[in-house]
Nucleic acid binder design. Structure first.
Lengths: 326, 326
DNA sequence: TTGAAAGCGCTAACAC
DNA sequence: GTGTTAGCGCTTTCAA
């Protein structure tokens, strides 16, 4: 119950606290015999160093913060795995926080990361412009954004080329004969949403199709929003012959809306969707999926972050992976 | 970049560090004028107390650990929200960790929680018998398990009555005319899986039906496992007339298997499923859903935990909520 | 190679 | 009401 300290271990092993510390941290400048006595004492007492006390001296933690906007989203889940694997390989642990796309929550967790002096933070920002990462910068805590960009701060970022991926998907739909392609967009605050909409427009232009305002409805990257947006599109007088949904959760909602309107895909309408959600949407080779390398993104974000953590200085780097059409 | 300390603030405000501390912590024994000078200095310098240094003195953190087995699972997501809301109301923050049903990861995160001296931990254990929570107990860090029980340790728990819920679902299926009810069970290590299987058997007995070994297939609470298990059941000579899937992710897999076998529900086969996954499975009033009060569970788990954190002593408590059939 | 001692940033006792 | 001081557990000079 009472904290077992390095002193207790030292006492038991008959050495000084300094020697215990040496055994536990940097290697072999301790006589083999003492070394073993110390390790035995550690084991017997069940001693675990206090990371707080250690931090106070060394200013080093082995905790990374991963602050993401929606842990429900399988997209992020897979990213978390990539991040965890890379982190634990390097001796770091990852603490997750869920902001629910809520700026206030995001700030709260950034404050926690700052107060805990985390070694670094990976952030998928809820807004491209309003952000609290200066709290981290002040403390010299490096930040890497993942998936989304930040417009107001120069930080490293790992993501995919959303414009190109969206454009390619549109062209594929056009190839399949679609001419009225409805687009379910995401929140204006989020860079991926902006980029994907831009890609949609580029795709139309490249295919010689006109951009029609009424074919674009804005959702919120959540299930319910996708359902509402899809319903809006399906009510249009000449119904769209394709639906391009710009994120996976909204696609689930859109699928529900389709069922409600008695429409099947791909028979009645063609679908294109960001992220690979085959398991939930029910396969269909006839569906265009934009698959993002989520695990890779998590892994690379941690690797980049750890280079900053170890003090490397280089200009803000943008790692852009490519999403592939499936 | 360099850490701003309480000394800097004190210097700027022309007071002692102790006074700064008093202003920032317990109330009003500081003259109004000094108080304002201090707060101004804090603002101007952007001072944030180091939680490590503070802990070293007070032995108190405001961080709760929430170690769950699969953040993919919407079941846990909603629980997380309940936990976060309750925690932040009490001035605590929640750090999430994802174990992927992996005991080694679970232990690693328990070690992190111990090293960070978290105020308390909520755990959804990957195994009922093999657990590392003694690491927390040694440090006096209270633990509440959620959803699942721990067999080897006496700790508080918040969950639902899985036996009863499963039994009720079986009876409902029988009411609907089903006689050959296939059951997709969960991992033997997890108490909810054991309980739900027991409920299935009780239900059969209560309905006067025989328990048939071949109608029970074990899955792993993951999507792929559910798909494989469902496929096994659907291959049986007289096909089951109902499928009872004991968790939500396996239900997604089972739905895929049904599609692969060209079966529709509820026309061709009746479904009963733990957890409310309407959004993914496509509604159907004809489907029996066992809805668990997940948000409540998270909330209550935190409230129970915080009572322990504040030192209350009472015998291990089991809060059992009821799951309802939808 | 090992130990003694100082000090990281903070708060709580104790003086004043 | 405010300042001085000691010390939380640890690592890291500095001496021996």
């Amino acid at each position: 119950m009472a904290q077992i300290t390095i002193k207790d271990v030292a006492g038991r092993a008959g050495v000084s606290p300094a020697t215990v510390s040496r055994v536990l941290n940097h290697g072999p400048t301790v006589a083999e015999e003492l070394r073993e006595r110390v390790l035995a004492a550690v084991r017997e007492l069940g001693y675990r160093p206090s990371s707080q006390a250690r931090f106070l001296r060394t200013r080093a933690t082995t905790l990374l913060g991963l602050i993401i906007s929606d842990i429900t989203n399988p997209f992020f889940t897979s990213m978390v795995r990539g991040a965890e694997d890379a982190a634990s390989k390097a001796g770091y642990s990852v603490m997750l926080a869920n902001t629910d796309e809520d700026l206030e929550k995001e700030q709260r967790y950034i404050e926690v990361a700052a107060a805990e002096n985390m070694a670094g933070v990976i952030l998928s920002p809820a807004s491209a412009t309003r952000t609290s990462i200066s709290l981290l910068a002040e403390r010299g805590i490096p930040v890497v954004t993942v998936d989304r960009r930040l417009q107001t701060a120069k930080v490293d970022r790992v993501g995919v080329n959303n414009v190109k991926a969206a454009q390619d998907a549109v062209l594929r739909l056009v190839d399949q004969g679609c001419r009225r392609i409805g687009f379910i967009a995401g929140p204006t605050e989020v860079t991926t949403a902006v980029d994907r909409l831009a890609g949609y427009r580029h795709g139309l232009r490249a295919a010689g199709l006109a951009y029609r305002r009424e074919l674009v409805v804005r959702g919120d990257y959540r299930i319910e929003g996708g359902r509402a947006a899809a319903a809006d599109l399906l009510r249009l007088k000449p119904r769209p012959d394709a639906l391009f949904v710009s994120n996976n959760l909204m696609a689930l909602g859109a699928a529900t809306a389709l069922r409600e309107y008695g429409l099947r895909y791909p028979e009645d309408i063609t679908l294109a969707v960001f992220d690979d959600m085959r398991w939930a949407l029910g396969l269909s080779d006839a569906m265009t999926l934009i698959s993002q390398p989520t695990y890779e993104m998590g892994r690379l974000a941690v690797e980049l972050l750890l280079r900053r953590v170890s003090g490397e200085g280089f200009p803000p780097r943008h790692v852009v992976l490519s999403a592939v059409l499936v």
